[in-house]
Design a protein around this nucleic acid. Structure first.
Lengths: 230, 230
DNA sequence: TCGCATTAACGTCAGACTGACAATAACTAT
DNA sequence: ATAGTTATTGTCAGTCTGACGTTAATGCGA
């Protein structure tokens, strides 16, 4: 392996931060302040720094964009993207991370994130670079995670109803689920949710029991969606 | 984003090339000829070159190590590894690829791969760099792929028996499967395998019908293993 | 106080799938 | 022919799923 073979490049970490908001799956996008793609929407991200590992960079970026602590959120690597001309600035590899979070108010105001907004995934096309594809991969990953893990709770607050949880599935999968079968499934899965004893009063109708995330991380058996696209 | 934030680094592509051989899941390892980790076993890999994309580099490395055409094999990205001190030579990010191939004779002789050997995954510990972890991730990915896709056929030759296919599952999962239930499952899944009409005579016993891979890529419903470790 | 609309939660039942095991089929060797 | 060996088909009960009916708990208006 001769030295001439060594290609020096930069590495970016891009984030697909997803939430369920207004009954839609939404992604945090920024408007680019600089060239290239100035003024165009893109996923938040930044360059890897010295001494930093990949998740570290993702956590830092997440903090800069949302003001939230990435250690407390679900953060997972999606894939690395390395097309030679994916970035007009030169050879830049991007490692994409997926974050799933509840619909919290974003504490940031004056930072880099001033231009950060929630965009429904269905509307989020024409992003800068290859971010359309990164987003598509991240969304598919999230959809798949809901099948085999308890991560749907990551989209909910600390306490939630089974209806809230079902809504997450419906919105992320874009598919209606039978409330009765869903209840049976969730409550029948050991460690998925644990009842708090509390209730939430709706505007009208019977109050719903509140739950919090249980200890289990994987769903066995899984909750398979009928319509598998990816 | 100031220029000082930009960290320049090198990117390596490492391969976990898996096959089923002698009733064991085996991985192709090389003995390192240079420092660091000279003389120690490692996964084959190399640096990304100019104008090359990630899969391109993986295909090239695969060709160099095995003499096989990576375009005809299953090749998929596992993950990117970027711990700051994963490589003593400096800041090197590794993107790992998983290859699944039948037990073919490796045509290479005089190339880089002179030191390439098949090692049972169970024995392959103490690899250079963080390759132990990369291998573990790749193996877990392969195990998972067998559940939800028809990729077990990638471990078989062009023609195989249901017994061959079952052996792949048993070896990769490290778990016994009931031959009768397995037959029912495979033959009942549309597009998993198609009969060639031919038969293979064993040393002793009834001849087995031969099949080739069908058109389907995903298994619906999946073949779930009982023992999920990862 | 009594319906009544509304949402939550539990029940039922047939069909599909799974795991465990029995029986038969097609060979070879003796 | 008979035994030994491997491949393939079959059976059956338990489990899970999807579709749909019923009951429960609340606020609101008559």
């Amino acid at each position: 392996m001769a030295e001439r073979d060594h290609l020096y490049l930069r590495l970016a970490v891009d984030l697909a931060i997803l939430t369920v908001r207004d009954d839609a799956l939404q992604v945090l996008t920024i408007t680019r302040a600089n060239q290239p793609f100035r003024g165009q929407a893109a996923l938040p991200g930044g360059f890897l720094r010295e001494g930093e590992d990949l998740v570290g960079a993702a956590v830092r970026e997440l903090g800069e964009e949302t003001g939230l602590d990435g250690h407390r959120l679900h953060l997972e690597q999606v894939e690395a993207y390395g097309d030679p001309d994916r970035d007009p600035r030169g050879r830049i590899i991007s490692v994409a991370y997926l974050a799933m979070m509840p619909d919290l108010p974003l504490p940031t105001a004056g930072s880099d994130a001033s231009s950060a907004t929630w965009t429904p995934v269905a509307t989020a096309t024409g992003l800068a670079f290859d971010h359309d594809r990164i987003l598509a991969d991240a969304v598919e990953r999230a959809r798949s995670r809901l099948e085999f893990s308890t991560l749907a709770t990551a989209f909910c607050g600390a306490e939630f109803t089974i209806g809230d949880l079902r809504n997450v599935y419906e919105v992320v999968w874009g598919e209606r689920l039978d409330p009765r079968n869903f209840n049976r499934k969730v409550l029948g899965t050991e460690g998925f949710v644990t009842a708090t004893g509390g209730k939430r009063m709706p505007e009208v109708g019977r109050p719903a029991a509140l739950y919090r995330a249980g200890g289990a991380t994987t769903l066995n058996p899984p909750i398979l969606r009928t319509d598998k696209a990816g």
